[in-house]
Design a protein around this nucleic acid. Structure first.
Length: 260
DNA sequence: ATGACGTTTTTCAAACGA
């Protein structure tokens, strides 16, 4: 089973490269974040033509939004309203023969890493706290993917020391994420395939003059599994090339093959 | 670290992203 997660930064603005990804990599399940489209305007016909006709979408106008597309039928799906804000940051799907797949878009957190003066950062920490409580009570087999907006390890960013006060890599966020991982025993699949002392990124800013040459990346996107699924992932790659496609997202897709 | 870039909207400027 091939799973790809990708923060697409507007699905409607990027239909061409979604098609390119699906054609070139043939995912069984594709999890998108930041779709930036209300459900009634989602390009469902486009996904049918791509061979991913089964959709579970949770969108809103302008911001956020997640969508999971599958080759085979989605038997069940549900959304969780984290922090009771009514925003679109999660959808879970159950596809036959696979574990439950949770697709997340965790709040970015704004600029200032201080919950007292920055409501967005406070929201991010509360969101992580709710995910931690939820994870602690979670039974069964689950896959959790998405843009979690935190690069936890030193080699998940291009310069650990320079990013210590930059939201996405601050100690308070990293501690919250490690606590979240511990709560369920989440397996960090990307790091099972690339050792923690090697650089691994999934996002590069649009603002760099030459993103690839500068290579000032961060690993903001993740694929985790329940501990019961240890050993089921057989391949992982960050599709870095996609960051250089025409009119790219600032995130690269992350691909994992599972042997269920 | 900075500045610079891209998407969206009761648009042509501002909010948001990370």
């Amino acid at each position: 089973m091939r799973l790809i997660t990708w923060n697409i930064n507007s699905v409607r603005a990027r239909l061409d490269i979604v098609a390119q990804l699906v054609r070139d990599y043939q995912p069984d399940v594709l999890c998108l974040q930041e779709t930036k489209v209300q459900d009634h305007m989602f390009p469902t016909g486009f996904f049918e033509e791509l061979g991913l006709p089964h959709l579970a979408i949770h969108g809103q106008k302008s911001h956020h939004g997640v969508a999971t597309a599958s080759k085979t039928p989605i038997d069940d799906h549900f959304k969780i309203d984290w922090c009771e804000k009514g925003d679109a940051r999660h959808i879970a799907v159950k596809v036959d023969g696979m574990p439950m797949i949770h697709n997340f878009y965790v709040p970015a957190g704004g600029d200032e890493p201080d919950p007292v003066i920055n409501d967005k950062f406070a929201h991010k920490l509360k969101f992580l706290d709710e995910m931690t409580s939820w994870s602690a009570d979670l039974d069964g087999d689950h896959i959790l993917v998405g843009d979690l907006n935190i690069a936890p390890y030193e080699d998940d960013v291009w310069d650990h020391k320079k990013l210590l006060k930059v939201v996405s890599h601050t100690p308070v966020e990293v501690e919250a994420m490690l606590k979240l991982i511990e709560a369920h025993g989440w397996q960090d699949i990307m790091r099972d395939f690339v050792p923690k002392d090697q650089k691994l990124y999934s996002w590069w800013s649009y603002r760099a003059r030459d993103w690839s040459a500068a290579d000032k990346g961060r690993r903001l996107d993740h694929v985790w599994t329940s501990p019961s699924l240890k050993g089921k992932a057989v391949h992982m790659e960050v599709i870095r090339d996609a960051r250089g496609w025409v009119k790219p997202s600032d995130h690269a897709p992350v691909l994992v093959d599972f042997n269920f």
